[in-house]
Structure formats: structure tokens, C-alpha cells
């Protein structure tokens, strides 16, 4: 009995330490963001919430010149959302179509082509960032949403997941649909897409978070402040802090950080059931 108690306590202790380790920094960032700049400058990081929550967040989100020179927090939030959603939706569409072609159209190069797609895993954007930039610059697409998203959406992982899923769909469904007069497009839209619902949801969620957190590419691609995403905004505000000037606005930097982590957390929390289902369950 005693033994058992000790085991319980020690495992819980380990888990609690883990939870604190993960969440304490977030909490400190939040608590600090609700204090006045003078307090932070004088007393350092804060562990308890202060009284400046509304002032700080209002300025960050809605007041011109509140965080950046001109761009509002809401605009950066919008840009981040566009990037996250465009990135996720684009990836799902492209990889579903690629997987559809590879699995259902018996063209001769299907397998080698799939290998090539898979090999691109070894070539992340960071490796081809200069040529990509060059291409987009020549196309005049720097500082546009399309230019920001399109170069990112080819997805080997997504293609792989959908390929595995499509291969598990029984052949008879395709045959029944062919006898029912479905076109290639009809089969995809009417049968495959609805069957892949949970899979699509899972990949959308993962990719939204990945897209939201994109850093290097938006940093290079965007030159105008109005196109900043939250992640870029954070980078800029800390740079401003480092360069010094008047009273450093640490609380705003923290507020921006909190704002940037919030949407991905919400998405995962709200959709985690779908997410788990999509990865675990093979619905047939």
C-alpha cells in the first residue's frame, strides 16, 4: 500500500513539474503584460496579474502607433489568420489532389513521382528560400498574400497521409461509382472528400498551427509593415526594445506574444476531438 502511494505521488510530482515547466513561462508573460512599463522596469518579471490589462491590450490591438509605427495589432492578427488558413487550406487541397492522382490514376510514373514528392521533405523552404524569393520578386508578388502563401503549400507530408488514406478506401467504392456514372471529378468530390472528413480536419489543424508560426519566409517576403504577421510583429518589437529609445514597452511585447499564441491554442483545444479521430480512426 505504502509503496503504491509513493509511486502515485512521485508520478504526479513529475507530471506537475512538467506542467509547470510548460505553462509557467506563458503565465509569466501574461501576468507581466498586465503591468505598467515602470513596474516591469523596476521590478522585473511579474508573477501576479496587474491592473493594466485593458490599457495595454487596447493599445496593442486597436491604437495606431500602439505597438508598431503604424500597423494595428488587429491587422497583424488578420494577416496571421490569412497566412494560417491559406497555408492549411492550400496544403490540404494540393496534397489531396496529388494523392488522388497518385493513387487512382495508373500512369506509369506514379510511384517514382511519389518518391520525388516524398524526397522534397529533405528540401524544406529554408533551403530554397533564395530562388523562391527571386521568382516571386520577378513576378512582382513580394508583399502580397498570394506570394506569401503559394510557395509554402506543396506538402509531402499531407500527400503521404492522404495517399495512405485513399489506399485504404476499398476499390469496390470506385467501381460502384464508375457504374453509377460518376466522373473522375465526381468521385473525388462526392465520395473521397466526404470520406476524408476527419483526415482533412486533422491536417487542417496541424497545418494551421504550422502556418501560423511561419517565421523566416514571411520575414523575407514582407517589407511593408501593413503585411506583418503577429510572429513578425513580435520579432520587430523586441528589436525595437533592444535598440532602446524611450521607456521600453515590455508589457506590449508580452501582450503581443500572448496574442500570437492564443489562436493556435484555441484551435487545438476546440478541435482536438476531430484531430484525434482523424489520426486514429479509420472511418470506412
Amino acid at each position: 500500500m505504502k509503496n503504491w502511494n509513493w509511486r502515485l505521488i512521485s508520478t504526479h510530482a513529475i507530471l506537475i513539474v512538467g506542467v509547470l515547466f510548460m505553462s509557467l513561462p506563458v503565465w509569466v508573460a501574461f501576468a507581466t503584460s498586465t503591468h505598467a512599463p515602470e513596474t516591469i522596469l523596476r521590478d522585473g518579471l511579474q508573477f501576479l496579474p496587474g491592473s493594466h490589462f485593458f490599457t495595454t491590450y487596447n493599445e496593442v490591438l486597436f491604437v495606431e502607433g500602439g505597438v508598431m509605427k503604424s500597423v494595428l495589432g488587429t491587422t497583424m492578427l488578420k494577416n496571421s489568420l490569412i497566412l494560417g488558413l491559406g497555408f492549411a487550406i492550400g496544403k490540404v487541397i494540393i496534397s489531396m489532389l496529388a494523392a488522388y492522382a497518385i493513387v487512382y490514376f495508373r500512369f506509369r510514373l506514379a510511384t517514382p513521382l511519389f518518391c520525388v514528392i516524398f524526397l522534397t521533405l529533405l528540401l524544406p523552404l529554408e533551403v530554397r528560400i533564395i530562388p523562391s524569393y527571386e521568382v516571386l520578386a520577378k513576378l512582382g508578388m513580394l508583399d502580397t498574400h498570394v506570394g506569401l502563401i503559394v510557395p509554402l503549400i506543396a506538402s509531402a507530408t499531407g500527400t503521404f497521409f492522404f495517399r495512405q488514406f485513399f489506399r485504404s478506401v476499398p476499390d469496390e467504392l470506385l467501381e460502384a461509382a464508375r457504374l453509377d456514372g460518376a466522373t473522375a471529378w465526381g468521385f473525388f468530390i462526392d465520395i473521397l472528400v466526404p470520406l476524408s472528413k476527419t483526415m482533412i480536419a486533422a491536417i487542417l489543424i496541424i497545418m494551421f498551427v504550422v502556418g501560423w508560426n511561419q517565421y523566416l519566409w514571411p520575414l523575407i517576403m514582407t517589407t511593408k509593415e501593413e503585411n506583418y504577421t503577429l510572429v513578425i510583429g513580435i520579432k520587430q518589437i523586441y528589436q525595437i526594445l533592444a535598440e532602446g529609445g524611450e521607456l521600453p514597452q515590455y508589457q506590449k511585447a508580452f501582450a503581443l506574444t500572448i496574442l500570437a499564441t492564443l489562436p493556435p491554442v484555441l484551435v487545438v483545444l476546440i478541435f482536438q476531438n476531430w484531430f484525434v479521430k482523424g489520426l486514429v480512426e479509420s472511418e470506412k
Partner: peptide
């Protein structure tokens, strides 16, 4: 002639109903 235009209908062993 494509399967759809042959005017034949088939019943499969595992039914092959559209699950959704």
C-alpha cells in the same frame, strides 16, 4: 463502352455502399 454507359448494374460482395 465505359461502365456507366453499358446499362449494367452490379451488386458487390461487400455491398460497396457509399458509407457517408
Amino acid at each position: 463502352v465505359s461502365p456507366a454507359d453499358r446499362d449494367v448494374a452490379m451488386v458487390f460482395q461487400n455491398y460497396a455502399l457509399y458509407p457517408h
